[in-house]
């Protein structure tokens, strides 16, 4: 059992939890993820690691309540425990000195971006961060990420904070004025697609972190397979980070809708209880 030792409500639908998982915390590196299961009847869901503290033995997860399991997770409190919590899974981020890097985060994708921003800064990069959300209340970890950024921008769809529009608009301006060596983008699939299309025009190396449906998370089921440059890769063991210019985003969007009907049914039933 893995105890919840801290919980923060970041918005109506986004929550942060620190989970006691010393073995995972000891090994966790930026870019990796965990698989959790709430109880004996639960499904296994992957969540990217938002932070880790090897001394305290904790892993921070930040999640959007989007389906049955994340909604149920959101109802748990400090002192409650999760049945299973396995990790760290996947390959760590390619953290090294690139020069000038732009870190683009959208929605809850900002959470896993945070440890990468930190690591890139600590590796001596000039870090430019661009965070985006529908509205300012949905922005995450602004202060934390700003603290590790040389330049920091915000974009909101409704203009409630920062640039009114998309993160890609801001990225375009950055590219127009500076020499960018690498772009790291984590967020909704459509955002990663737009960012990758933009950087491809300028031939700027771009990494994205993919979030397909998984079951075991250890390379066994292939449910998380993604098409990279026409080749099938497993996001759980080959990723979750891939060259953004080579990802078949449309196939990923399609595969992430595989169980949308069942998800709706489960949510409705859970809501009725």
């Amino acid at each position: 059992m893995y105890e919840i030792i801290e919980k923060k409500v970041l918005s109506d639908t986004v929550k942060l939890m620190k989970i006691k998982a010393p073995l995972v915390a000891k090994k966790a590196q930026p870019g990796q993820f965990i698989i959790l299961r709430i109880d004996e009847r639960g499904e296994r869901i992957p969540l990217t690691i938002a932070d880790s503290d090897p001394k305290k033995g904790t892993i921070t997860i930040i999640f959007l309540e989007v389906g049955k399991t994340t909604k149920q997770l959101g109802t748990l409190n400090v002192g409650d425990s999760l049945e299973n919590f396995a990790g760290p899974l996947g390959m760590p981020s390619e953290v090294k000195k690139y020069g000038t890097v732009v870190c683009v985060g959208g929605g809850v994708g900002i959470a896993p971006l945070y440890p990468i921003v930190k690591a890139l800064k600590e590796s001596g990069n000039n870090v430019i961060s661009i965070l985006g959300a529908k509205t300012k209340d949905l922005l995450l970890l602004e202060k934390e990420i700003e603290a590790y950024s040389d330049e920091f921008y915000i974009a909101t769809d409704d203009g409630s904070k920062g640039h009114k529009g998309f993160v890609s608009d801001v990225l375009q301006k950055v590219i127009d004025t500076q020499n960018v060596n690498m772009v790291m983008a984590i967020g909704p699939i459509i955002m990663m697609k737009v960012v990758s299309n933009l950087t491809k025009k300028y031939d700027i190396k771009t990494l994205v972190s993919l979030n397909p449906i998984m079951v075991d998370g250890t390379g066994m089921c292939g449910g998380c397979r993604v098409s990279i440059d026409g080749k099938t890769k497993f996001a759980c063991v080959d990723g979750p980070e891939f060259d953004g210019h080579k990802v078949d985003y449309d196939n990923l969007m399609l595969r992430n809708r595989r169980f949308i009907h069942a998800e709706g049914e489960a949510c409705k039933l859970a809501g009725a209880q």
Partner: peptide, 21 residues
């Protein structure tokens, strides 16, 4: 593997009593 893991280990044949579809 995915099909059988969902059905056997995750008990998808008992969905929605179990969460995995």
């Amino acid at each position: 593997n995915e099909f059988l893991t969902r059905v056997n280990m995750m008990k998808a044949y008992k969905f929605p009593e179990y969460d995995t579809p």
